[in-house]
Amino acid sequence: MTLRIVQWTTGNVGRAALKSIIERADLELVGVYAHGPDKVGRDAGELAGLDRQVGVTATDDIDAILALRPDCVSYMPLFPDVDDLTRLLAAGINVVTTSEFITGAAVGADARRRLEEAAVKGDSSIFGSGVNPGWIEYLGAVASGVARNLKSVKIAESFDLTILSADGNQDDFGWGRPAGDPGHADDVAEGVGEFRDAAEMMATVLGLTLDDIRYEVRFAHATKDLKVAGRTVNEGTVAGIDISWFGVADGADVIELNAVWTLGTAIDPPWTTNMGYLIEVNADPKVIVRVDFLPDNMETATFDDLIAMGTTLTAAPAVNAIPAVVAARPGIVTYADLPPITADIAPRLG
C-alpha cells in the first residue's frame, strides 16, 4: 500500500526527509508545508535539491494541508509547535517528527497530555526520533539481547562540532559563556531535555521502571580565542560540554546517556573526541558496540557530503518509521511500540 505523505518544513533535516519520501516507492508525497514565504509555490523536487520537478508545490496554508488528508506528516521544524501537532493528530493524521520529541517529557506534562488526547481522539499516532537521542538508544537496548544478567547500559556520543557550530540546534549549548556562569548547567539541561525522553524510551524497551532520571554536566574552556562559525568563543569561555543523563532503578544507575561535544582541541581540560558512538552493555558477557558513520562515496566525499550525511542520519529514523507508525496504536508511540525499523531497499539500476 502506498501511503500519502506531507513534509512539514524544508530546512536542513526537512530537505533530507523530503528527498527520501520522494524516492521511496511505498510513499507518495502529496503536500509540503513551508514556513518561509520564499519557499511557497516552489516545487518539492527543487526544495529537495533534486534535478527534476515532482508536481507538488509548497504552501503555508495549514487548512490546505489538512484538506489533503494525508496518512502521515513528516514534521521537522527545529522545535515542536504543540498547537499545530494537536491539530494534525485530532484530524486523524499520523505524525513522525525529529523536533526534540520522543516520549513528550521534554515538552512538559500538560503538552504531553494534550498530544496524547488529540491522538486518541483522531485515532492517530505520533512518533519521534533522530540519530541521537532516539535511534542510538534503541540500538543500545537491542544490543543487550545477546547477554544475560543485565546490570547497565551506557551510550557515549563524542564529537567535535566545529564544522557545525553555526547550526541553530546548538544555540542552547552556551558556547562562549564565561566560566562558572550562573544558570548555565540548567540552561543546557533544558536545551537537551529530549535526552530525558530517550532514557524513558530506552527503559521501556528494556522492560525497566525508572525511579528517577538525573543529570550532570561539566564544562571545558578555550585556551585561546577560537574562530568558529556563528559563535564568539574567547579564551576562558566554554568550548566543551560533557553531559550525562542517568536512569536510576533500585538505587543503581542502569542507563547512562553521555555526550561530549567540543569546539576543537584548544580546550582545558583537554578532552578528546572519538567522532562516533560507543555502546557498553554491562552484562554477562559484556557487549561493546562501536558505531561510526561514513559517506557512501568515501573516496570522493566533500564537506557538503558530510553535512548531508548528518541531516540524513537525523531524518531517516523518522521517515523509515512511517509505515509502522501509520499501523500503530493511537497515541504517543516509541520504539517500544513498533516492529523493527529498517531502511527500504533501493531499486536496482541496470
Rank of each mutant, 00 (worst) to 15 (best):
S99H: 10
A58V: 11
D81H: 08
L50Y: 13
M76Q: 11
R112E: 15
T59N: 03
A105M: 05
V73A: 01
L50E: 11
R112D: 09
I93S: 01
A105W: 10
Y75P: 01
R52I: 11
D61S: 12
A90T: 13
D71K: 06
R87V: 06
A109F: 06
D81F: 01
A118N: 09
V82N: 03
R52A: 15
G108V: 11
V73T: 08
A111R: 08
M76A: 12
S99C: 09
A67P: 06
A106G: 08
A64G: 14
V56R: 06
L78E: 06
E116R: 15
P77F: 03
D110S: 14
Y75V: 04
P80H: 09
P77Y: 06
V82G: 00
A118D: 07
R52E: 15
D63A: 11
R69H: 12
D83C: 01
G104Q: 07
D84M: 08
L50I: 14
V95C: 04
V54M: 10
A111C: 08
I93F: 06
I102Y: 05
R113V: 11
F101W: 08
A105N: 11
A118F: 08
T103G: 05
N94P: 06
A91C: 05
T86Q: 04
V56F: 10
N94G: 05
G49L: 12
T97W: 01
E100D: 13
R69L: 01
D81W: 02
D81P: 04
S99G: 07
V107A: 06
V54P: 05
I65E: 00
R114N: 10
L68H: 02
A118V: 10
L115V: 15
A118Y: 08
L78D: 03
D81N: 15
Q53N: 14
L115T: 12
A118G: 11
I65N: 01
L68N: 00
A67N: 12
A106K: 08
D71F: 06
D71P: 03
A105V: 10
V73S: 02
D83N: 11
D110W: 02
T97I: 07
A58M: 09
T59F: 09
A109M: 09
A67L: 08
G55L: 13
G104M: 05
D84E: 13
I65Y: 06
A91E: 06
V96W: 01
G55F: 12
L115A: 09
D60I: 02
D84P: 00
P70I: 10
L88V: 09
D51F: 05
A90I: 00
R52Y: 13
V54G: 05
R113I: 10
L78P: 00
V96Y: 04
R52Q: 14
